[in-house]
Each structure stands twice: as C-alpha cells, then as structure tokens.
Amino acid sequence: MLSVTGLTMRFGGLKAVDDLSFEARAGEITAVIGPNGAGKTTVFNCITGFYRPSEGGIVLTDAEGARFALDRMPGHRIASRAKVARTFQNIRLFAGMTVLENLLVAQHNVLIRASGFTLLAVLGVGRYRAAEAHGLEKARHWLDRIGLIDRADDPAGALPYGAQRRLEIARAMCIDPVLLCLDEPAAGLNPRETDALNALLLAIRADGCTLLLIEHDMGVVMRISDHIVVLDHGKKIADGTPAEVRADPAVIAAYLGEGDEDEEAA
C-alpha cells in the first residue's frame, strides 16, 4: 500500500528523519511510535505533502494498482487523487462552521464537480441537488457512527474535546481515503473515549481502509496495531508486530534511556 524508502528530511543542519524505510500494508493498522522529537510528525508531513522530503521516495499503490509518488505531488492532490487523508496533532476543525458543514467541506471535490464548478449550483439547476443530497447522506452516516448526529448543526468549535477528535476523523473519512493518517488520535482522551476511538479505528479498518497512526498511548498502539515502526532520533530502530517490538531491547533502551537496558519495560 504505502512504501517509504530512504526518506530523509533536513531542516537546516538538523536531520529530523534519517534514511527511513518502512511499509504500511493494505488493510492493516500501522503505528509509528517513538520518543518525543523522534521525527514522527515530520514523517507524516512528508507523506501528506506538507513537507517536501530532502531525499527518498514515498509511493502509494492503491487497490487498483495505480501508483502515486507522494513525495512529488502537491499537498492537495495527495488528498484528492491519491486519497490519503490525515488528522492533526492539534485539532484543526473549521471551528466557526457547523459539524455538518465540516463534513460537507471534506467532500468538496466531488460536490464542486457536481455543481458545475458552482455555476449550476448558483442557478439552482442540474444534478447538483442530487449530489448535495448524497453528500448530506454520507455526512449523516458518519455523524451516526461517531455519535454526533444530535449536534450536527452546532458550531464545531463548541463540541467537547473528545467529540472534536472524532469529528476530525469523520471529516477525513469523508474524502473516501484509501489511507488514513492519524496524528496522535488518542491524545487528551479519557479511558472511555479511548475505547470508543479504538472501536472506531477497528471499524474503519474493517471497511477496508488502511491506517497509519502516530500515537503515544501504548495501550492504544498495542491493542489495535497490526504492525509497529519505532523511530528514535529520526532513525528506525525496530519494525514488527506489537509482540516483537515490545520485546526488542533497542526499543526498551530508547524509551527508558541508555544504561537502563536491564530493566523491564513497563
């Protein structure tokens, strides 16, 4: 599905990501973990086109076998063509717009084509009405899934924190992604919300979407990931199933610091 090879990202003299290679396989949940400053978000920003990598390639192959070189595509194309969606570490909703509007904006590219690039929609003719009804239906579907149907017409910024996290995921799903990248989705959630999040992510995987996530909450990572990539100082130090990673001495060292290698990981 997603293959990252030799990815390097430099900021001035600093190497945030150093010759990183890994794969995210179709239909799996791949987690990227590592201590603070390990370069996880930088990797995400390279994959989703916010940064242009200094070196290396990022290739996405979808179910039909079409290949997209993400490292060479402009940011918005990565979402619209290659169908890679993402969420942000610090939630980025359209706070002043309603929950429903947030989900409709996510379907922008479909809807704007149906609106005859706005002309037909302004005049109120053509197939736009049907397209909008379809868009609303999809929005309603996601609102049901994240349990926000009652708050559809409230401003997104007025939602509680956990609901905002779920809404951001739903909004990303509204672009019909093949790969969903989540930047710390469990940050700031209480245990009950974390469980709901796990269920949501597993359901999204069951629908056939591939997931890539950065997460600090090891509970979430270990429970739902199929495959874990561990970064430290921009380099990959481990790569494998949750069980393999948990037992890897290099990982334990990275998390607990050098010299503590004998101790058990918590």
Binding site: A79, A85, F94, A95, N109
Partner: peptide
Amino acid sequence: RTPLGRAWEALREDETACRSLGINV
C-alpha cells in the same frame, strides 16, 4: 450555499486543514 462558498469559509477558518482535505487552496 455552494461547495465553493463553503470552501471559502473553510479557508478562512483553517487553510492547512483545507489542504489536507484535497481542496486546491
């Protein structure tokens, strides 16, 4: 009330999020 108009307002609220949703900013 068209997708374009909504995209404008979304742009006003958060340009980065717009880009991540595939909107040609």
